[in-house]
Design a protein around this nucleic acid. Structure first.
Lengths: 250, 250
DNA sequence: AAGTGGTCTAGACCACCGC
DNA sequence: CGGTGGTCTAGACCACTTA
């Protein structure tokens, strides 16, 4: 019954429903790292007892978090913090598909790193990541391929303050979101993307084996952590000959 | 208590939960047209009594349908079949934004129809709409602009059997999904899109005021009705100079 | 004041998993 | 078998809208 103060704490202008407070408390444990990816959560009744609410209220909070992709629930097993390795999660943020793909033959591309550097953030990067003057950002460029076929060239930009010690790493792994979680406790909760068609720059069309002036799909992505801050800026240039970006709107 | 048979009817191999049967029954009323867009549904308790289940079970079904965008619930007012006019619905399937847009200045583009024709379906169209040999399809081409600025040229393809009497219409309205609902009782439940970057065909770059060979964003969309059938095939070619396609993944 | 959706509870039972 | 999530119920109370 101690933790009931935790739930009463917020006391916003517009009173939140109880399940929203429960959700905030649980998300807080993910942010703080008290619950790590892959870990099993206490049972619904255990959480309910601890927070002094009913099991149904806890369930509503857990269901919401499951819908957001933060948790995975398995009947008979338990509730787990979702990992970027889970099959269903791997493709959560990966929307590129081969044109003749059947939908089931989804594969995940490998990465070859082309460059890596630590730079002083420019104005745009400072604003994006809310950095101080003089703060630094990592730039990575990589070529991603599927079955030997080059698909896209992309640039990853990470704020140095959220990713210290990166210089000690030889390269980033292929699945970077899993790496962010495992190494830095950063869980990517959602991403915003802007898509445009542009003419491929020379070095990109070379890497992708396209004629110069070939059109490519530009995907400008900002990845948000659980606390709402931007942790990665990514610009991908994807060849459109054999690949497309799929989307479903409901 | 009569309608309990309706709910028992399915009896699938994998027994569905009760709320899923309730959902099916309610969606059936939308499909049949018994409940039309904009109409108010009976209260939770009224539906629960009629179907012989508890109010909580009905609520779970209604909540799901609300999440899918089929219904709109307003506290104190009631539950309504969603209309394509609702502000929140208007932009549900429209993801194009001006590059310098602030996100709040969302506006909806006007349409100018360029052509209209009734043709015998080709092999691809026959397969897509599950048509018989010799069946016909409507082709519409229109230019969409925002504040006088041309944004995209798109082609709409509709199966004649789902849209009879269209020849009597001078043109389709701007908001076609609202029209499908009001005129034919067809509710678009979801759409699948494939995005690619291509070089604009000559007549498209002319309409959009682009140089020849300019890259444009191709959006290939199939719209699905409540019963899962495809009711519209749409290919939009959008200029990428001032516009982009925004997407959020969770 | 009456009617609607929104929240919360308590308890029952089922389905699935792993030991 | 015991523990987990999944479903379903019945009832209470709150918040909002309309008349």
């Amino acid at each position: 019954m101690v933790a009931i103060e935790t739930l009463d704490a917020p006391m916003r202008l517009a009173a939140q429903p109880l399940y929203a407070k429960v959700r905030e408390a649980l998300v807080g444990r993910l942010i703080s790292g008290a619950w790590k990816p892959g870990q099993m959560l206490p049972s619904e009744f255990a959480i309910a007892d601890e927070l002094g609410v009913s099991q149904g209220t806890v369930r509503k909070a857990l269901d919401e978090m499951t819908n957001e992709g933060l948790l995975i629930r398995r009947q008979g097993r338990g509730t787990f913090v979702s990992e970027a390795e889970d099959k269903s999660i791997l493709f959560r943020f990966y929307r590129l598909t081969s044109n003749n793909g059947q939908g089931t033959d989804q594969s995940f591309p490998e990465s070859k790193y082309l460059s890596r550097s630590l730079q002083t953030a420019n104005a745009e990067e400072k604003a994006l990541f809310s950095l101080e003057v003089g703060a630094q950002v990592w730039h990575f460029e990589r070529l991603r391929s599927e079955n030997g076929q080059p698909i896209l060239v992309e640039q990853l930009i990470l704020p140095q303050n959220r990713f210290p010690d990166l210089d000690e790493q030889k390269d980033l792994p292929n699945n970077v979101y899993r790496f962010y979680g495992a190494q830095y406790g950063i869980i990517v909760a959602r991403v915003e993307e802007k898509l445009r068609a542009i003419t491929a720059p020379a070095h990109v069309s070379e890497h992708l084996g396209l004629e110069s002036n070939a059109p490519v799909l530009e995907i400008d992505r900002r990845a948000f952590a659980l606390d709402g801050s931007i942790v990665e800026w990514r610009v991908s240039l994807c060849q459109s000959d054999t690949m497309h970006y799929r989307n479903e709107l409901k």
